[in-house]
Nucleic acid binder design. Structure first.
Length: 325
DNA sequence: AACCATAACGGGG
DNA sequence: GCCCCGTTATGGT
């Protein structure tokens, strides 16, 4: 056998080049299960070129008012940002019960979620405290049933840039992780009262492409007896770095979904920025995007989301102390 | 907003 | 052009 072959066999595999250069700074808060790294500087630099493409106005159908950026985040960094966020954020698999045909039914939300932000009646101070938006004084305990979480630097940077480019204002960031084609979200509108009448929502895709379906809500029969033309269903295949800005009448009149898909699909992260106007929005979002269960974190070795435990986190990369007899 | 049963679709042979 | 069957769409709960 050749000498080189043995060397190849025994030499430990070269450590994989990291997909991103981790920052030394972190966003911390008492409400976080663990600190979240700042966005790597290389990504932050490239984000200054966003939007990478001019937005395409989509208003060809009735009540449709959106802009499609293909992409918004430069393709050169979109997959890297996907890897970064999947690794550095904590996620939840929310469970709750609904009444189905009178009987309580368990719902396991078919995706991982996490949420940051607080509605417009409050704001975070520099040190992470919550104060009333008007008076600047500490909020009464009891204003929220949940514990609102400030938006970490890595997601706040993209929020600020998007606000600047679109002229919209956001105070919430929802993140969804679709692990594979079985993870999905069924048809719904983001038309909750606490978002106001004509909400603007910026929705980013990172990682695997997924179909994004839109259909008009049922149109009530016209009182004059004229026939109405149903708007066409729309299918967008959202790729890594793409962004759709939904605004105006869109949420009031259209439903959207990311349906289950057969076959092998990689993971996809969806980030949405939106503005909640009143307190009810804050508790609602934390109920359905954080829930009451524990956090999950991406395990790169096993390639899956794993239940996070404070103990294991503390001993990460550290040899456990020997026990004396 | 999800599950599930069932219908409709559509590419391969 | 038709059948097969996996995938996708739809409607009731």
């Amino acid at each position: 056998m050749k000498r080189g072959a043995l060397d190849t066999f025994f030499k430990p595999v070269a450590p994989k080049k990291p997909k991103y250069e981790a920052s030394t700074q972190q966003s911390s808060h008492a409400s976080y299960p663990f600190a979240v790294s700042y966005l790597p500087e290389a990504f932050a630099e490239q984000l200054q070129f966003a939007p990478a493409e001019e937005g395409r106005v989509m208003n060809q159908e009735r009540d449709l008012d959106m802009v499609y950026y293909q992409p918004y985040i430069p393709r050169s960094i979109a997959d890297g940002m996907f890897e970064f966020l999947r690794q550095e954020l904590f996620f939840y698999r929310v469970q709750y019960t609904i009444k189905r045909g009178g009987a309580p039914t368990a719902i396991n939300t078919p995706r991982f979620t996490t949420v940051f932000g607080v509605d417009a009646t409050s704001r975070f101070t520099e040190d992470g405290g919550l104060v009333d938006a008007k008076t600047g004084k500490g909020i009464e305990k009891g204003r929220y049933k949940c514990t609102p979480r400030p938006i970490p630097q890595c997601l706040g940077l993209l929020k600020d840039l998007t606000e600047g480019a679109t002229g919209c204002e956001f105070n919430f960031c929802l993140v969804n992780y679709y692990a594979d084609g079985k993870d999905s979200i069924s048809y719904h509108s983001d038309d909750e009262r606490f978002l106001g009448e004509l909400p603007a929502i910026a929705s980013f895709t990172l990682g695997a492409k997924r179909d994004f379906l839109m259909k008009h809500k049922p149109i009530p029969p016209s009182t004059t007896g004229e026939s109405v033309v149903e708007p066409k269903q729309i299918k967008l295949t959202l790729g890594s770095g793409d962004m759709v800005l939904m605004k105006g009448e869109t949420q009031r009149n259209w439903l959207h979904s990311v349906p289950k898909r057969a076959g092998e699909q990689g993971g996809r992260i969806n980030i949405t920025y939106r503005q909640a106007l009143v307190r009810g929005g804050t508790d609602n979002y934390y109920t359905y995007n954080v829930g009451t269960g524990g956090a999950f974190q991406w395990n790169a070795r096993e390639k899956l989301m794993r239940a996070w435990s404070a103990d294991e986190d503390a001993s990460e990369g550290v040899t456990p102390p020997k026990q004396d007899k």
